[in-house]
Design a protein around this nucleic acid. Structure first.
Lengths: 174, 174
DNA sequence: GCCTAAGTTCAATTTTAAATGAAAATTCGG
DNA sequence: CCGAATTTTCATTTAAAATTGAACTTAGGC
């Protein structure tokens, strides 16, 4: 049993109890943390997503905090990040202010969302810069070798940009 | 002018001088640093690669250290990383112990090298884990929803693995 | 419209990753 | 094979990123 203490003005000793993580949950969390690391996504975010992913029903804020043993702030920020990238959705139940969270139906769409926000902006930003560099290099009589490299770099940038744009247009699929 | 002091037992006051980075070099460095950040590659490594990329001739260790203004250790480790991933090559000139460094001819091959070393291992490692999780989930009568998610996850892992393997087989091209 | 539960914010802290540089190891010209 | 030049190593320092939690804001049930 995991105990989470919650301080509110009315009830400064409120305590909630949760089941500790199962072996399977722990392993799935490890998996997501590892994959997230490749994409440069922080540990706590991956943990939250993994927990939701392995839960049959949508989970409340407190449950996420309690079972993972992380802070309120991390849960709040993590959910915001995941929601902003279309990776989780919240459900509101009438008669309660609490939201309940579950992963978005399509993992593909989720990854595309991540890609759009993490990678595309950098690629787009760089396009004019590379163009300028190539121009300056030929104007200023840089060596053929260097001009050639810069041109290839520019080509790569365009390709990556096209690829990303294409991925963004992909119809949703699982 | 940038001055780099080098201490050796024989000559503890040896000094080398280098031209500061040009505006173009600085911008190209910024570009590579940004791209590297997406891939989770550290700043100093990106700087080294960018400098070599924008130089018409192969560069010596000291030149890299001096012009970038980074430490010996960073240059050494950075070059090792880049070499290990097939992104740079060294040339030895007769009559001198010094190596001279330049980027590998194919940027494509370089990126593939990075992919192979950074991403593939994690994907491969995870394969059996996911298989086990799916099996346990169905053995232990998890909800259909969760079993379904885990199965989809496994499918994604396989696809990513196939894609990576495919990329590794691509013939070299610029 | 109060009032409290629910959630957010952000400065302070902790944790993690990267860079440094002196000492050790290696390499090759003489 | 000696010895200095060149490079590597790695304990320490520095810098960056992630996490925490108390104070604050907001939403909605009553």
């Amino acid at each position: 049993m995991i105990t989470l203490s919650i301080k509110t003005p009315k009830n400064p000793m409120k305590k909630l109890h949760f089941a500790p993580l199962s072996a399977q949950e722990k392993e799935l969390i490890k998996f997501f943390v590892k994959m997230a690391a490749i994409l440069g996504v922080q540990r706590s975010v991956a943990e939250i997503y993994a927990l939701l992913y392995s839960s049959p029903e949508a989970l409340e804020f407190d449950v996420i905090q309690g079972r993972l043993g992380i802070s309120k702030g991390s849960v709040s920020q993590g959910l915001r990040f995941l929601k902003g990238n279309g990776m989780v959705e919240s459900i509101k139940v009438k008669g309660s202010r609490r939201e309940r969270w579950k992963p978005s139906p399509s993992l593909a769409a989720s990854l595309v969302g991540l890609l759009r926000n993490q990678v595309l902006p950098s690629l787009e930003e760089s396009k004019p810069l590379l163009q300028k560099l190539v121009k300056e290099a030929s104007d200023q009589n840089f060596s053929v070798e260097v001009i050639d490299r810069l041109t290839r770099l520019q080509r790569w940038n365009s390709r990556a940009l096209e690829l990303s744009t294409f991925l963004l247009l992909l119809p949703r699929c699982n």
